[in-house]
Simulated assay, not measured.
Amino acid sequence: MSDNYQTIVVGTDGSKSSLLAVERAAKIAAAFDATLIIGCAYYENKDDASETLRQDSVTILGDETAQKNLEAGEATAREAGATKVEKAVRPGTPVEALMAIMTDNKADLLVVGNRGINSLTGRLLGSVPADVARQSDCDVMIVHTVT
């Protein structure tokens, strides 16, 4: 395994805070000349969404909204200097989607924003950043995007 990051995955839900995480990931990707994969989860229907709804994540219904979020993420990444940018969308919870994208692409760094990590819900039920940090088998960077 190389000392440099070659494949970096970052999650976005289209929110301002998630785009800050994309920007940070893009700067790291540019510095290492790594491939940046911007990932977004979506729920296929309202029933799926309501079962897993949490206060710390934006609910994205349908692939079309996810694709728009990815386009915004790609624009942010390119502005921040990333040149090798790919996009990935997966159905399911944000944690499930990020884990799948990370595994499918053999990522060596996963970048997420810290939204939800300090909320009461986040402490009781878990949050996207805390859950991915526990489940990931690669390095995880939690970007301070929300105070």
Rank of each mutant, 00 (worst) to 15 (best):
T7Y: 05
K84Q: 14
L124M: 03
M102E: 14
A29D: 10
D108K: 09
N114C: 02
N45P: 07
K68P: 02
V128A: 07
V132F: 00
M102N: 14
L20Q: 15
I38K: 04
V58T: 15
E74W: 14
M1K: 15
Y5P: 05
M141N: 08
S127T: 08
L70A: 04
R24S: 13
K84I: 02
I38A: 04
A26L: 05
M1L: 14
A130T: 00
A97D: 00
A31Q: 14
R115G: 02
N4L: 15
D139Y: 10
V146Y: 11
L19T: 02
N4T: 14
A107M: 09
G39Y: 06
E64H: 08
G126N: 05
P91I: 01
G73H: 09
A34M: 07
V132L: 00
I117W: 09
C138Q: 05
A75V: 11
V10I: 11
M141T: 08
G14N: 04
T83V: 13
K106A: 12
T147S: 14
Y42Q: 07
I117F: 03
S15F: 10
T145P: 07
I60L: 15
T121R: 12
I101H: 01
S136N: 03
Q6E: 13
I60N: 11
D108T: 09
I28Q: 08
G73W: 15
D13E: 12
E71Y: 09
A66S: 07
G39R: 01
A107V: 01
C40N: 11
A130G: 04
I142L: 04
A34D: 06
S127P: 06
V128Q: 00
G113R: 13
S50I: 13
Y43W: 14
Q135A: 15
L53V: 13
Q135F: 13
G11T: 13
I117H: 06
L124R: 02
K87T: 12
L36E: 10
T147C: 09
P94N: 08
I38Y: 03
A26K: 05
S119C: 02
S2T: 12
